[in-house]
């Protein structure tokens, strides 16, 4: 294992970290108390998964960077998250659709990672697989409820779909890092998860009375470090305290 392993782990770990940060912004602002609690719980699970993967990536890298160094001291071009997760929260429907598009990927990825040749990654995955299964139940139920809800909620979900759909495909585009990670047995090839992902997402959209849009040119580049401006603002907020007080302890 080497550089490809670090990159491959950061692609998943950073996606979890950035999404957890996005979800945490709902704390105290969700439309109902139960949803406020739900998103905080989901964010906590996903943050825990991110911590495990970032710690492992730092160990494999061998340059002395721990989870905090990786989370707080990298700039946007060094982040490897999917573009999907850095998209703004928008309204609750947008947040739930983004969550479904993520959860439906996670719920295929983690069970495959249980068979990773890296025992630490396999251990993280064994826990995360159960959590992801619970998360997708929540996000899918909201996409159905809002898509097949009122005229207003339906229109909002159509707008959310229009906005987010181009970001749904990035997780399944293989590059040389993915091929090397798959050959070493660290991770499954991203494209191998696509058929199951499509099936799940299309089933939920059908139940939500939402059309499955045609495949667009999938937005890409986040996994290689090319991000939109949204990520820089998110990181600025997430990192400011740590960078202002780098040696502070509790």
């Amino acid at each position: 294992m080497g550089d490809h392993a670090v990159d491959a782990l950061l692609r998943v770990g950073d996606s979890c970290l950035v999404l957890a940060q996005r979800l945490t912004a709902w704390c105290g602002h969700a439309p109902a108390l139960e949803e406020d609690i739900a998103l905080a719980n989901v964010a906590l699970d996903i943050l825990g998964q991110a911590r495990g993967l970032l710690t492992r990536a730092g160990e494999i890298e061998g340059a002395g960077r721990d989870e905090d160094a990786l989370a707080y001291l990298r700039d946007a071009p060094d982040y490897r998250n999917l573009l999907l997760v850095e998209q703004p929260n928008g309204d609750y429907g947008t947040t739930m659709l983004r969550q479904l598009l993520f959860d439906a990927w996670a719920v295929e990825l983690w069970p495959a990672l249980v068979f990773s040749t890296d025992p630490v990654v396999a251990g993280i995955a064994g826990k995360a697989a159960k959590e992801a299964a619970y998360h997708v139940r929540h996000s899918a139920s909201w996409v159905v409820r809002l898509g097949d809800g009122t005229e207003e909620s339906h229109q909002r979900m159509l707008a959310a779909l229009d906005m987010l759909w181009p970001y749904a495909g990035e997780a399944f585009l293989d590059d040389e890092v993915d091929v090397a990670a798959a050959e070493s047995g660290l991770m499954p090839l991203p494209s191998s998860l696509l058929p199951a992902y499509r099936h799940r997402v299309e089933s939920v959209l059908a139940e939500a009375t939402l059309p499955v849009p045609p495949d667009p040119w999938w937005q890409r580049g986040g996994r290689q470090g090319s991000h939109g401006e949204h990520l820089t603002y998110l990181l600025a907020e997430m990192q400011v305290v740590h960078r202002a007080h780098p040696d502070a302890t509790w």
Partner: peptide, 8 residues
């Protein structure tokens, strides 16, 4: 062992 990944 933690119950959940993010158990605080």
């Amino acid at each position: 062992t933690p119950t959940y990944s993010g158990c605080p």
